[in-house]
Design a protein around this nucleic acid. Sequence first.
DNA 1: CACAATAACATACTTTTGTCTGTTATCATA
DNA 2: TATGATAACAGACAAAAGTATGTTATTGTG
Lengths: 211, 211
Amino acid sequence: MAYTKPGVTRDRIYQFMREQLLNGEPPTVREVQTAFHMRAVQSAKSHLDALVRDGRLIKVPGKSRGYRLPDPTRSNRLAPLVGRVPAGPFNIAVQEIEGYIPIQSNSEEQTIFGLRVSGDSMMDAGILHGDIVLVRSSAEVQQGDIVVAMIDGETTVKEFCRVKNRIELLPRNDAYPVLSPRPEELTIIGKVIEVRRYLETVNLISEPLND
Amino acid sequence: MAYTKPGVTRDRIYQFMREQLLNGEPPTVREVQTAFHMRAVQSAKSHLDALVRDGRLIKVPGKSRGYRLPDPTRSNRLAPLVGRVPAGPFNIAVQEIEGYIPIQSNSEEQTIFGLRVSGDSMMDAGILHGDIVLVRSSAEVQQGDIVVAMIDGETTVKEFCRVKNRIELLPRNDAYPVLSPRPEELTIIGKVIEVRRYLETVNLISEPLND
DNA sequence: CACAATAACATACTTTTGTCTGTTATCATA
DNA sequence: TATGATAACAGACAAAAGTATGTTATTGTG
């Protein structure tokens, strides 16, 4: 290929690698070579070596297609979307899973799931019927957080409020009453960390993740 | 490895492949072989061939690590998140990009971007100040859709309404007036296809996607 | 138990891929 | 325009990976 100013081709190769890797297709050195119309493998290789040296890529040693993104935020995981939260010690039964939605999670192994909301009791908080809330079930819950709670087997989304020794669950809609459940009938399932509303038909990912 | 009942090992291999592929690391035939403690390459290969035959995997012919998930909904792309929509023929200036958010897009090459909403004029539609709307800029806009429009260089999110020969933009908050812009000062930028609200700090992906 | 289908194995061959050594061309800067 | 750094090229070799052929063992079913 034509000679370029120092750094130009390298940046282009980085962009190419990033695109391919995010797409789940790690290229070979020779694929980079041909993608950039280079006549020597070494031309591509030395650029890739430099990108690794600069920390812009990492390499799994000794493996083919071994270049990876160092990015820690790369974990675009799939969270299960449940139609309702089942009773019992919290683990989602496979039968309840509607599908999977992509989320972005920096820390590993957190129990995040999606829940489809019923009713309009949180309307004033911008959570409408049919919306999906993403819930972290391991989260600590604080005053004012929006939480998913289970009262006597019924799942509900409300604002969390501690009053003296009791816990109150506040709706955000004047038409609904404040809930003051007895402690023994209340389970806080998790904290709502995100609200999503799909205004167009979306093909949810339907296949399970792994084992 | 020990003989298993027909289908059992195959399912396990499928799970393994799916997990690896979603993680962006396509395995080789021999990696499958060793992962399952097989003593022959062909043992793994014939299972993989069968998975391809059954349509559970697809294979890029002639390439190493060439197995892929057939899932068309697999394209978890990154959409740019802009703080405001710039004027001019619509292309997003790189300087305006706050970050990138993962989206799920079945069709290829659609211009989808995220926009952070200012103001509470759409409160009753569950779109609050600070929310992110995902916008498809190539979409056809119909009566009742929520759209992003530009009036005289100002960006706004409103409900689209065609009245006779005019276009009206309806807020969803009684405190705001209906907008009846003159056609020459109005540009419909796109249709809102999703609403997101992050209730926790989220590390947006900060690196650019590709050229 | 006979028999077909599937699972697992053993070995060999070809292509792809990673890597190495050395050379030539262009860029940037003094 | 001289010089060091970077970019690109050329050719070769070894390891990794894809693929093929043939064989043996186990499963499922009548």
